Simulated scan of single mutants.
Amino acid sequence: MKFTLFNRVAGLRAGQHAVVTGGSSGLGLALARRFAARGLSVTLVARTETHLASAAADIVSAVPTAVIDYIPVDVADGSAVEAAFDELPAGLDVLVNSAGILREGYFERLAAIDFRTVMDVNFFGAVNTIRATLPRLKRRGGRIVNIASVAGLTGVFGYTPYCASKHALVGFTDALRFELNPQGVGVQLVCPGEFDSPMVDALELTRTPENRQHTLTIPKLGIDELADATVSGIDGGHQLIIPGAKTNVLVTAQRLAPGIANAIAQQRIAAVYRGPGL
């Protein structure tokens, strides 16, 4: 599914500068590695300095010419982000919002803090970083790439906090595009299905059987396939990037025939349904 930006922005180029949140692991790190290989300088952003240092060393090991910096900050803290980003160069070409967390479980068993925490990182984290970098992005006619999820386009069993945050990010991104395109800033949205990452590995230890059955309606992608498809979509200036051919087919089916898609999902969930047992 590919929609081109209203104001077509050029592809990624050597000499550009990119900031990648969630850059110490998972998709953020995979994208940062590819940016560095293309000759972009990259600033990694995440909460833990030791993880960032390890990620930076990993990139330099793979790309000896890489120019990598990092900023340890919690993107959920707007004031801290503003202060930390003061050290960024005056111009910025690419902001990738890849920082994200998961809380999975039966709604009745999840606490209010689970919803607030997920929203603070997945949604407000992107809002905070965009606020802090927008003047720099305007100077260079840059682009914003928000990493949402297929879970931001539909519902998923057990993902009430996660879906809420990603739906919010999708709506925010679509609205922001109308505002920023006339100002020369591109806004792109990436909605992957589930993929190999430390976050998903941790989820496997506790996820409900219904969630596992429902999410795996869409085949899990490898991190390299996902990152390559994302970079290709960024280069192509696509408004919406949904990596993976099967993921595209299933998302299209959900949009065009929601009744059939929902019936299939309900059948899969019913086959393993256990419920909260309250």
Rank of each mutant, 00 (worst) to 15 (best):
G78C: 06
S79V: 05
S79Q: 11
S79A: 14
A80K: 11
A80L: 06
V81E: 10
V81N: 08
V81D: 14
V81R: 06
E82K: 12
E82C: 04
E82T: 09
E82W: 03
E82S: 10
E82F: 08
E82H: 14
A83M: 13
A84K: 12
A84T: 01
A84F: 10
A84Y: 14
A84G: 04
F85I: 03
F85E: 11
D86P: 03
D86H: 11
D86S: 13
E87N: 10
E87P: 03
E87T: 15
E87Q: 14
L88N: 07
L88V: 02
P89S: 08
P89H: 08
P89Y: 12
A90E: 12
G91Q: 07
G91S: 09
G91D: 12
L92Q: 04
L92P: 05
L92N: 08
L92M: 08
D93P: 00
V94L: 14
V94C: 07
V96T: 06
S98C: 09
S98I: 00
S98G: 03
S98M: 02
A99D: 00
A99E: 00
A99Y: 01
G100P: 02
G100S: 04
G100K: 02
I101P: 06
I101R: 15
I101T: 14
I101E: 09
L102G: 04
L102S: 08
L102Y: 03
R103H: 12
R103Q: 11
R103P: 01
E104T: 03
E104K: 04
E104Y: 03
G105D: 07
G105A: 10
G105K: 12
G105S: 10
G105E: 04
G105I: 05
Y106H: 09
Y106V: 00
Y106C: 01
Y106M: 01
F107G: 04
F107N: 09
E108C: 02
E108A: 03
E108W: 02
E108H: 01
R109S: 06
R109V: 01
L110P: 10
L110H: 11
L110S: 13
A111Y: 02
A111S: 10
A111L: 14
A112S: 15
A112E: 12
A112N: 09
A112W: 09
I113Q: 14
I113M: 12
I113S: 15
I113Y: 09
I113E: 15
D114F: 12
D114A: 13
D114K: 13
D114H: 15
D114W: 13
D114P: 12
D114Y: 14
D114L: 11
D114E: 11
D114G: 11
F115P: 04
R116F: 14
R116T: 12
R116Y: 14
T117E: 15
T117P: 13
T117R: 15
V118Q: 15
V118N: 12
V118P: 10
M119I: 15
M119V: 13
D120H: 00
D120F: 06
V121P: 05
N122D: 15
N122W: 00
N122E: 05
N122M: 00
F123C: 00
F123I: 00
F124A: 05
F124G: 08
G125K: 00
A126E: 09
V127K: 12
V127L: 14
N128L: 07
N128E: 07
N128Y: 11
T129L: 08
T129A: 09
I130A: 07
I130P: 06
R131A: 11
R131K: 14
R131N: 10
R131V: 08
A132D: 05
A132S: 07
A132K: 01
T133R: 02
T133E: 07
T133A: 06
T133Y: 05
